[in-house]
Computed example of a mutant assay.
Amino acid sequence: MYLKIDDLSGPQVAELVREHLQSMVLQSPPESMHALGLESLKKPEITFWSAWEGDELVGCGALKELDSQHGEIKSMRTSSFHRRKGVAKGVLQHIIEEAKRRGYQKLSLETGSMDAFEPARKLYIGFGFQYCEPFSDYVEDSNNVFMTKKL
C-alpha cells in the first residue's frame, strides 16, 4: 500500500468520499455528523491522502491543522472492499508521522459513540489515543466522542 497527497479530483476518490458521507448519514443524526465533503476537504488547512494498492483505491485520511501545535484527523475511511486488511492502520500511522514531522504537540479526532464506530475507537485506542473533552469548535454531544494523543 502506498499513500499520496490527493487533490480529490479523481472519480475513485470522489466515490470513496461519497461512500463515507453516506455511511455517516446512516449512522449519525444530522446535528452530530462532522464528516466533510469534497469541497470542504480542499481547504488549505487540510491535507488529504489517498491510499492505493496498485491502481485500486483502498482508503483515505486527512489531517487538518487546527493551529501550529494541534492537528485533527478527518475523513478516515477504508474502502468497503478492503476492510480488515490493515488499511486504516497504515493510513493512521502515516497521519501520526506527518503530524510529528510538522511539530504538532497533539493530535485529536472526533468519532461516533454508537456501536458502529467501535472498531474505529479500538483502532485509535490501540495507537495511544485517549478520550478527552470536545476540542476546537466541537460541543459535548452524546452521539460523539473526542480523543487525543500527545505526540
Rank of each mutant, 00 (worst) to 15 (best):
M1H: 07
L3R: 01
L3P: 06
P11H: 08
Q12C: 01
V13L: 12
A14D: 11
L16R: 08
H20S: 15
Q22V: 13
Q22S: 13
S23I: 06
S23L: 14
Q27F: 08
S28I: 01
P29C: 04
P30T: 09
P30G: 07
E31C: 01
M33H: 09
H34V: 14
A35T: 12
E39Q: 12
S40K: 14
K43E: 13
I46Q: 03
T47C: 05
F48R: 00
W49P: 04
S50I: 05
A51S: 11
W52E: 05
W52V: 07
C60D: 02
G61T: 10
A62C: 03
L63P: 05
E65S: 09
Q69S: 12
R77D: 02
R77V: 12
S80F: 10
H82K: 14
L92S: 02
L92C: 08
A99L: 02
R101L: 14
R101T: 13
R101D: 11
R102F: 10
R102Q: 15
K106Y: 03
K106M: 04
S108G: 02
E110G: 07
S113D: 05
K122H: 12
Y124V: 06
I125W: 10
G126P: 00
G128F: 02
F129D: 03
F129N: 04
Q130A: 11
Y131H: 13
C132S: 15
E133K: 13
S142L: 09
F146T: 03
K149V: 04
K149P: 03
